[in-house]
Simulated scan of single mutants.
Amino acid sequence: MGYLDHISEYCDVTSTRKSKRKPFETVEIKVKMDCDGCERRVKNACNSVSGVKSVEVNRKQSRVTVKGYVEPKKVLKSVQSTGKKAEMWPYVPYNLVSYPYAPQAYDKKAPSGYVKNVPQAFHDPNTPTEGYTTLFSDENPNACSVM
């Protein structure tokens, strides 16, 4: 046993270096855009954030989708720096919600096919009512056809 082996028993070398790479994320933001100039300013603000791979703007839905290795808060602040009122995308697709007409979920201002993302719209999938909703469905090949 050498001197270095003897010292290595007392010293423990661990790497304290953490990975600085952010996970790949898709960030959706709701921004009201009226013209091509607004759209261009929002798109340029999103592209200025480091790590952005693609930016998609849908002016009709007032929606901006940013994909890349970014932090959602940084993207939101960058869009807000243009002077536009921006918030995270508050809607979920209509088909993912069990109770789309819950009092807080249904929103007339929501784009077609979307409802607000609120806990009242979702429910536990283990409830027995889930089986009743698909029992008479046309998509279910084993459904009872009483008609």
Rank of each mutant, 00 (worst) to 15 (best):
48 S>W: 05
52 V>M: 08
56 E>A: 13
62 S>G: 06
31 V>S: 07
51 G>Y: 10
53 K>S: 06
62 S>V: 01
34 D>Q: 07
62 S>D: 05
29 I>C: 12
62 S>Y: 02
55 V>E: 03
54 S>R: 09
52 V>N: 04
32 K>E: 11
64 V>C: 02
59 R>M: 14
30 K>N: 08
47 N>V: 09
48 S>Y: 07
47 N>T: 10
44 N>P: 00
57 V>R: 02
40 R>F: 12
60 K>T: 13
30 K>E: 06
30 K>G: 00
63 R>Y: 00
64 V>Y: 01
45 A>I: 05
55 V>T: 14
59 R>P: 02
54 S>A: 12
32 K>I: 15
64 V>M: 01
53 K>Y: 08
38 C>H: 15
54 S>I: 03
45 A>H: 11
47 N>E: 12
51 G>F: 02
62 S>E: 04
40 R>H: 10
54 S>L: 04
34 D>A: 15
46 C>W: 02
51 G>H: 07
35 C>V: 09
37 G>T: 05
50 S>E: 14
52 V>P: 01
58 N>T: 12
48 S>F: 07
43 K>T: 07
40 R>S: 10
43 K>R: 09
49 V>W: 03
33 M>V: 11
41 R>T: 13
50 S>N: 13
37 G>R: 07
57 V>F: 00
31 V>D: 03
28 E>T: 13
50 S>F: 13
49 V>D: 00
56 E>L: 04
40 R>W: 13
63 R>A: 08
62 S>A: 11
42 V>S: 08
48 S>M: 03
51 G>T: 00
44 N>T: 08
56 E>H: 12
35 C>N: 15
32 K>H: 15
66 V>E: 01
37 G>Y: 04
38 C>I: 13
50 S>K: 14
47 N>C: 10
62 S>L: 01
34 D>S: 15
47 N>Y: 04
40 R>T: 09
33 M>F: 10
61 Q>H: 07
57 V>T: 05
57 V>H: 00
40 R>Y: 07
65 T>F: 02
54 S>D: 04
46 C>M: 09
63 R>H: 12
63 R>L: 07
34 D>H: 15
51 G>R: 02
58 N>D: 11
59 R>T: 11
60 K>R: 14
53 K>V: 11
55 V>I: 06
49 V>N: 02
28 E>S: 12
42 V>D: 03
38 C>P: 11
62 S>M: 02
40 R>N: 08
46 C>L: 04
60 K>G: 05
35 C>E: 08
31 V>P: 08
33 M>P: 03
36 D>G: 14
56 E>P: 00
66 V>M: 04
29 I>R: 06
32 K>S: 14
65 T>I: 09
63 R>I: 09
37 G>E: 02
